[in-house]
Design a protein around this nucleic acid. Structure first.
Lengths: 125, 125
DNA sequence: CGGGATCCGTTGGGATACTG
DNA sequence: CAGTATCCCAACGGATCCCG
């Protein structure tokens, strides 16, 4: 399969769909953290920092629904729930890391462009 | 620079920031279309399809602000405005294409997982 | 401990009307 | 043609309370 073209609009919709899925506020942070191994709920919560319980639950449910993570409940007292990446989740990390490297290298350029743009707006007034 | 670790939380925030930026509903579609060459406003509008005028303007302004596209106004009657990718914008397309390929290959798996999850919910009731 | 339910402010995004 | 301005609704996301 040669991706020589991959220019069709429908294709791009699929990409856009995936991007919006993992491009929300927390998914990527959660996936990255889970990349280090199985993790419990509050472990995730504190490991990420700044995420509310509701959003962590929502994010995990979505990731589970899309087959990126598994949820394992140990019916002990108190309950213990562990989240872990599936194969799909781990595979996702590969292209994401490519984008991650790019982002790290170029985030400065983006911020510069942004500052220049905002400054230009002010100067124009 | 060996990206051996790239595991710091701050790093991931940068990635998350870029991802949310291009992960919105239209940015990627616009960038992809602009990858084919300089394009006028309504040309983009019809070429993408489904995007409102407001969102196209908003998306283009954001992309311009972040240095991904340039906006060129030809002061003719009627006015003619062309949008074009910057070097930064073209470079962005590289890692994005990696993710794009992954998405195209695996979107089916995601949809399957989703259907299975939703079905399981219903069956559990 | 790991959530579910609810309330509420913020943001995203579409439709429409108007302008240079 | 290429926007801007406005309205309005839906989704996102945080805070809080409650429950097994």
């Amino acid at each position: 399969m040669k991706p020589t073209h991959l220019h069709a609009t429908e294709d791009c919709r699929a990409v856009s769909e995936v991007l919006q899925r993992i491009g929300d506020k927390w998914s990527l942070l959660v996936v990255r953290r889970l990349g280090e191994g199985p993790t419990r709920f509050n472990e995730l919560r504190h490991g990420i920092g700044g995420i509310s319980q509701k959003m962590l639950t929502t994010t995990l449910r979505s990731l589970e629904r899309d087959g990126f993570v598994t949820r394992t409940v140990y019916p002990t007292i108190p309950p213990r729930v562990e989240y872990e990446l599936t194969d799909l989740g781990r595979e996702l990390l590969v292209p994401v890391k490519g984008l991650a490297e790019w982002a790290l290298v170029n985030i400065g350029r983006i911020h510069q462009a942004r500052a220049a743009y905002d400054g230009g707006i002010g100067a124009a007034a």
